[in-house]
């Protein structure tokens, strides 16, 4: 197991990237660090989504339902009752898990497009709720949270990097464990998986909970980094679509690819900002081209090359 880990090319590439990533504050500006910090939280969103879609086979079109639940729960508690940040994040994560279970129950009954539709409706419901109860949630203007993670850019950056690496390690490890194998089988052929003696419902429910936990935690941490929670950053369907594109772009069923895709998407969007309105168009076109011509995504294509040899 560990021998294979050391000999794997992927391990070394990851290690190099990690060292470069960790020392980045030494040679880039605070502005770039800020963008990367955001992209790392985004990376966790995409990885958590990949666990559900790539492994459990559940097409969740509303990743922001889980993210938004975590973010707003943490934000509201912090703003209204002044709980310490750690407790707020924990509460946000728990709320997201609750939301995950709520999504999972119909997911185990509904098939295909119906479940996808339901996840979209869940996002719209959450968005409506936030707008209607503006007194508590800040409504369309957004919710300002009194606490922030760190004042210093570098500290914020290192924290986000650490969080993404830790989440990535856990999710990746899970995907490569026996549970990941059972999940993949459940996603592909639930009838046969059950006939092999696996409780498909139990495994899928667990996948929903794990995905929700990381989505919610990342969402909560992100608003404590930004200092505000708003529909536009953590709930809007457009944000969810970006998470999905990131995961597919990086390579579904790879977990790590999702993070790579997310960082690429955010950085590319920022690099093309001088193009103004066009930037979104260019990034979308690139994403579309990658999905069309390399349906396995960045990392997926790399792994494929390895598979063939």
């Amino acid at each position: 197991m560990f021998g294979r880990l050391i000999s794997s090319r992927l391990t070394w590439i990851a290690l190099v990237l990690l060292v470069v990533g960790a020392t980045l504050p030494l040679y880039v500006t605070g502005y770039i660090l800020g963008i990367l910090t955001l992209s790392y939280y985004f990376g966790v969103f995409a990885m958590a989504w990949d666990l559900l879609f790539g492994f459990a086979g559940e097409v969740n079109f509303g990743p922001t339902f889980l993210i938004g639940l975590g973010a707003y729960t943490a934000g509201i508690i912090n703003a209204n009752w002044g709980w310490p940040m750690a407790a707020c994040v924990l509460a946000g994560a728990l709320m997201a898990i609750l939301g995950g279970v709520l999504l999972a129950l119909p997911a185990l009954k509904l098939r295909g497009p119906y479940f996808g539709l339901m996840t979209l409706v869940a996002v719209l419901l959450l968005q409506n709720f936030i707008v209607i109860f503006a007194g508590v949630t800040g409504g369309e203007i957004g919710l300002t949270v009194p606490d922030v993670l760190f004042i210093d850019d570098s500290a914020n950056y290192e924290f986000a990097l650490g969080f993404m690496v830790l989440s990535g390690a856990i999710l990746f490890g899970l995907s490569r464990s026996p549970i990941g194998l059972i999940l993949q089988a459940s996603g592909q052929d639930a009838v046969e998986t059950a006939a092999l003696g696996f409780n498909v419902a139990k495994h899928k429910l667990a996948a929903f909970c794990v995905s929700a936990f990381f989505s919610g935690t990342a969402g909560a941490l992100m608003i404590f980094y930004l200092g505000t929670a708003s529909v536009g950053t953590v709930v809007d369907i457009a944000v969810g679509v970006q998470v999905i594109i990131a995961a597919v772009l990086g390579g579904r069923r790879t977990i790590l690819g999702a993070a790579v895709g997310a960082i690429f998407l955010i950085l590319a969007g920022e690099a093309l900002r001088p193009l103004g309105e066009l930037s979104t168009f260019v990034v979308s076109a690139v994403a579309l081209a990658v999905i069309l011509f390399f349906p396995n995504g960045f990392i997926g294509s790399l792994l494929r090359v390895g598979e063939k040899s």
């Binding site: 197991m1 490890g173 899970l174 464990s177 026996p178 549970i179 194998l181 059972i182 993949q184 089988a185 592909q188 052929d189 046969e192 092999l196 003696g197 696996f198 409780n199 139990k202 495994h203 667990a206 069923r253 598979e307």
Partner: peptide, 25 residues
Amino acid sequence: RPLHRQTVLENIKLALLPDSLIRLF
């Protein structure tokens, strides 16, 4: 529908796994 990304051996190993959420290895 077998697991396409896994080898034949891994496909067979799947059937030998316990139905458990805490057995990570």
